[in-house]
Design a protein around this nucleic acid. Structure first.
Length: 279
DNA sequence: CTTGCTGTTCGGAA
DNA sequence: GTTCCGAACAGCAA
């Protein structure tokens, strides 16, 4: 489900409920999601430890506990649900794959219909440089980037812009939805090849990505206020896209019909007028 | 019923 | 080294 804004919204939503809280036990119903660790094994490893921080890097969530890290990726459909003591004992649905119980009686529940998500415990370190999943990741588009950063990442590549935006080794956090909207916001055709992009276009893409993601985070932030503890935080906010999922509809800016194409197993959406193809 | 599509990433083949 | 393709899984719509 989540791209960067959704993961960030989940992080902000659950942090106040979890920070400084102590883990009492862990249940695991589908161990492949926890690198094969059972509930008993995970309980053994983190029982009595306190959550000291929750970070996000790209689409990864990182729970820092006493002397250890729990690193997770929600992939397509992972969701976290915080439930209060009053909802316990909790009857997990068949798509709930782990539950972390806190000493105060509340619980954090992981739900993932397609079971693509992964959670990896690093039992003896809080050093993020030791985390394999984070090795080689690119930079956050919502933070300041070095001069011509995206240009240097793509000008020698023979892949379409859309695919380069999905590559987490260059810019972090864009998925299929926000990659399409980033191309639209930058006014560049998603199939423009990396080595045809100018420095100016690349700068426009950096700015577009930042704006698209920040707007979505704000939309999530407004939604989160209505967040109810018993509901999944899945970040499908009232944050309308400009082109994604809108093929056949008129473009907001020029009225042209938005197009859709299937490539490499993913859909891509664009406005043929606002994103005229050059090469 | 079957097929294709879905917000992701990885590993192995070309 | 870069690029392509299928796999992991479940549900839904056509």
């Amino acid at each position: 489900m989540p791209e960067l804004p959704e993961v960030e919204t989940v992080r902000r939503g659950i942090t106040p409920h979890l920070i400084h809280q102590e883990v009492s036990s862990v249940e695991v119903f589908y161990p492949p999601i926890t690198h094969g660790l059972s509930g008993a094994e995970l309980t053994q490893l983190i029982q009595g430890k306190k959550l000291s921080a929750i970070y996000r890097r790209g689409k990864y969530l990182i729970f820092e506990l006493t002397d250890c890290l729990l690193v997770g990726h929600l992939r397509m459909e992972g969701k976290l649900q915080f439930i209060t003591r009053s909802k316990n004992p909790f009857n997990p649905s068949k798509h709930v794959h782990w539950v972390i119980h806190l000493a105060n009686g509340n619980s954090l529940v992981y739900h993932d219909t397609r079971k693509f998500g992964r959670w990896h415990l690093y039992p003896e370190t809080t050093d993020l440089t030791k985390v394999q999943e984070l090795e080689g990741l690119g930079l956050e588009p919502i933070e300041d980037l070095p001069l011509d950063y995206f240009y240097h990442g793509v000008h020698h590549r023979h892949l379409p812009l859309k695919q380069l935006l999905l590559d987490q080794h260059i810019l972090l956090g864009l998925g299929n939805i926000y990659a399409d909207d980033t191309c639209f916001e930058a006014g560049i055709h998603p199939f423009t090849l990396g080595h045809h992009l100018t420095k100016k276009q690349c700068r426009a893409i950096e700015i577009a990505a930042k704006n698209v993601l920040e707007r979505a985070i704000i939309a999530g932030g407004t939604t989160i206020r209505t967040y109810v503890a018993s509901e999944y935080i899945d970040g499908l906010f009232s944050n309308p896209t400009k082109v994604y999922g809108r093929s056949g509809e008129p473009c907001d800016v020029c009225g042209s019909m938005i197009l859709k194409s299937m490539r490499i197993g993913r859909s891509t959406h664009w406005c043929p007028t606002c994103q005229e193809r050059r090469k």
